[in-house]
């Protein structure tokens, strides 16, 4: 069988190829990072001093620019001294993958530097709590209002102009105000997440609901559904899948407000952790923390996608990778049992 063409517009590649591509999408950046980190002649703009020789201010482990290193060595040699030795190195802000890998591990297992500082997982939990509360609070009002705006044009006419106006104001601009009103602890941070999410949420949800299929409404009307029942029994269920996916995207949106939210008032959570680690120049920890945020985001999103496919069985979709995997496990288990 001839293998399908790689470039055909709109054509999904076969499953095996899809998996390979998904793997490559992570592997390629990692490969690039490894190359820059481990192949000495790629980039490596600095020299790490091994033996200081007779250069006064060199110390083993010190990082100096290559030009400076050569210059100092030349000076030392002409002065009759011993040249320093060293190896090419990258700046501290680019730790190699293995260092970040190690940091990922040690971040959870080492004690914080100061006594009243938090462990990484504690910082993370704090951040997740902020996001969760902020997003829930926003959704509590944003989703119903969005649905009403989408379903009833007069409601949209009343709310959407002012929401359109407010959403262009950057959420961080409300930081000082939030602190003044809500004190300096968790509340103003949650407020920033809410402000950042809510206005977009209303508009996004309203737009989705507005795109409902009018033919379904008409069908329901000829079956005797009154105006109030239409909203609950036709409009909302017909948009449910899209609303769910909107919420997934909006949750990602909320995450991007986390960093600005957490510097409001007393800096806390993962932002504080990253700040501290950067201050100590533990950049491997900084990367570890950033990667963990990414992993949490990806896992949440894929988890929600997976759950979505389960709770909306009417979608004519190909089963997800995770789904296929689980059903495979199920079949294996069934056979052995």
């Amino acid at each position: 069988m001839p293998s399908p063409r790689w470039f055909a517009i709109g054509r999904e590649p076969p499953p095996r190829r899809r998996n390979v591509l998904a793997l490559l999408s992570f592997l390629l950046p990692l490969l690039l990072w490894s190359a820059v980190s481990y192949v000495p002649w790629i980039w490596h703009p600095l020299m790490r001093v091994n033996d200081a020789g007779t250069v006064e201010w060199f110390k083993p482990g010190l990082l100096v620019e290559r030009a400076v290193f050569a210059e100092e060595n030349a000076k030392a040699v002409t002065a009759g001294g011993r040249a320093a030795t060293g190896e090419r190195a990258n700046p501290v802000f680019l730790p190699p993958p293995h260092a970040v890998g190690r940091a990922l591990w040690t971040a959870f297992t080492t004690k914080p530097v100061l006594r009243d500082e938090l462990w990484l997982h504690q910082s993370l939990l704090l951040s997740i709590r902020t996001i969760f509360l902020g997003f829930m609070l926003s959704s509590l009002f944003g989703v119903p209002l969005g649905i009403l705006c989408g379903a009833y044009p007069p409601v949209a006419r009343l709310f959407e102009p002012v929401i359109d106006f407010v959403r262009y104001m950057p959420a961080p601009a409300f930081g000082a105000l939030a602190v003044a009103v809500l004190d300096i602890y968790a509340a103003p941070k949650i407020a920033i997440i809410v402000i950042g999410t809510f206005f977009q949420q209303v508009l996004v949800i309203a737009n989705t609901v507005r795109r409902h299929d009018p033919a379904l409404i008409e069908a329901a009307q000829t079956l005797g559904a009154g105006p109030r029942k239409l909203l609950l029994h036709v409009i909302i269920p017909s948009c449910l899948v899209d609303l769910y996916n909107d919420q997934r995207i909006l949750l990602g949106w909320a995450w991007t407000y986390l960093i600005v939210a957490e510097v409001v008032g007393v800096s806390t959570g993962i932002t504080f952790f990253i700040g501290q680690q950067a201050k100590y120049r533990n950049f491997d920890n900084v990367y570890a923390a950033i990667i963990i945020i990414g992993i949490i985001g990806l896992v949440t999103d894929q988890g929600l996608a997976f759950v979505g496919r389960r709770i909306f069985p009417w979608q004519p979709r190909a089963p997800s990778r995770l789904n296929a995997f689980l059903s495979l496990l199920g079949r294996k288990g069934g056979k052995t049992a």
């Binding site: 008409e218 329901a220 000829t222 079956l223």
Partner: peptide, 20 residues
């Protein structure tokens, strides 16, 4: 006036509720 169940309708595009 207005739609009601006494006048049923079948459309060309089926219009079944996909979630049911």
């Amino acid at each position: 006036q207005g739609p009601c169940a006494a006048r049923g309708m079948v459309f060309q595009g089926y219009t079944l509720f996909p979630w049911r």
